[in-house]
Design a protein around this nucleic acid. Structure first.
Lengths: 247, 247
DNA sequence: CGACCGATTGAATGACATCAAACTAGGTGG
DNA sequence: CCACCTAGTTTGATGTCATTCAATCGGTCG
């Protein structure tokens, strides 16, 4: 199996028309776009496979749980949450997606989207229609290799995050914050200062903690000098201490 | 992209030399073996890509955390646990693998195995060496498609299992047991009666609960008529009640 | 400016961890 | 084959920590 070069020459595949957008070479679809022939600035070929959508406002759903799979998405700007409505109960948040990350890979095999994915803020995405992939023809193996890379990466990241099952609330929130920090850094954003696009309620739901507990933990981390927290603005002041909490 | 037929004609790829082994058409590697040309009983071609290993005794490691990725494995018989040794702390169990399932898919992208995987009982595996895949040549796209299917399936299953983060212990254990039941059923084994190959300690570690709590829950489920529990032997008596507990 | 939603903080209840001890099963060696 | 030993499991009593209920504060939008 051919290995995909991890550091290929940077090349824009689509011009950004929005501020704070991730450049294509820092995007989870990059390897895929590149393979699809989108690294040459040929808009005609481009439109056949990847389409750029109008920005989605906060709360808008990209797709809904149970909907037939048709496309995967890459986030150009903004962020999303994935929820499952297990029966008539309150929905459960199974994950968050940020700028540069891929959405929908977990829908390929089941053939249906297992979650509803909604925008946490005004967000824009690139959309890769799966039915159009036959147009790739000879480049299919390369494309598949890029897809396998992305899939395996998501799988390992999800596994690594399973320490979040730990019983102590400190540990869960610390793990969560470090995970966010790592993902931001991976896309070239500051690792130690960021804005949470999700509410305390969302964080609590995701971590299996009460809203009040999350709030209290933020306050305690703040008082202990680990974080500087101002509403949704977070700055990591003591990285070591935060990492120590995850152990 | 070509769709892989989900119900292909059954064909053994390797003769079982051990009791209780899963048949190849119920194995996670089946789609992959089939594509690799192993559905014809050609042992010479077979040996180039998939190798059958001697049964591993309980406690033996298939590979170790951090080891360079070289192969994926399919379980012919037995079961395994995946652990991460986060720093010098006690190891954390991130998942279990059972007969017919694939191990190592999460190592492709990082290029290293993110966990140590050890046998919970005497177990045998088929091993697919990744370096040998160039021998597949023209069948590579088919193989890749099978791999993508397997990866996406694992990803969606892992996501679906995230409800295990919920705070109530009842819910966690019920979710865990139903997940096991589903996975056994998928391989043609009885869904309502099975033997746990892992200890109470392992279950507690995985779910983020104390051993004593796990034991108490089993006792309570037993007393409530939801389960019949005798040491590691489990029988689900009231499926509805168990499903109700997960909500 | 007032209403509403999200975030914070306090006090009381309840659930799970911890400590401790008895019991069981499986395996080993005499 | 049996006695023993060890690891695993179960059960009880106590303490701790997170949830729950409740009230207040702050920011945003109409």
């Amino acid at each position: 199996m051919n290995k995909l070069p991890t550091n290929a020459p940077a090349n824009l595949c689509l011009p950004g028309h929005e501020d704070h957008e991730v450049a294509c070479d820092a995007c989870g679809l990059y390897g895929i776009c590149r393979v699809a022939g989108l690294d040459t600035f040929d808009l005609e070929q481009l439109d056949e496979v990847v389409t750029r959508r109008d920005p989605a406002p906060r709360g808008q759903a990209l797709f809904t749980e149970g909907e037939p799979f048709h496309a995967i998405y890459a986030i150009k700007s903004g962020s999303f949450k994935a929820t499952t409505q297990l029966d008539g109960d309150t929905p459960h948040i199974s994950g968050f997606y940020f700028t540069g990350e891929l959405i929908g890979l977990d829908a390929i095999q089941p053939g249906r989207y297992p979650t509803t994915v909604t925008a946490l803020e005004k967000s824009s995405v690139c959309r890769l229609e799966f039915d159009d992939l036959n147009k790739l023809d000879k480049r299919l193996p390369e494309f598949q290799q890029a897809l396998i890379t992305a899939l395996s990466g998501q799988l390992s990241q999800l596994q690594a995050n399973s320490a979040i099952n730990q019983q102590i609330a400190d540990r869960r929130l610390a793990t969560f914050l470090l995970n966010l920090s790592l993902r931001f850094a991976k896309r070239g954003m500051p690792a130690e200062q960021f804005r949470l696009s999700m509410s305390r309620g969302d964080i609590g739901n995701y971590l299996g903690l009460a809203v009040e507990t999350v709030s209290r933990l933020f306050s305690r981390f703040h008082d202990d000098g680990v974080l500087r927290v101002n509403n949704r603005e977070v700055e990591i002041l003591n990285l070591d201490a935060l990492q120590q909490l995850t152990k």
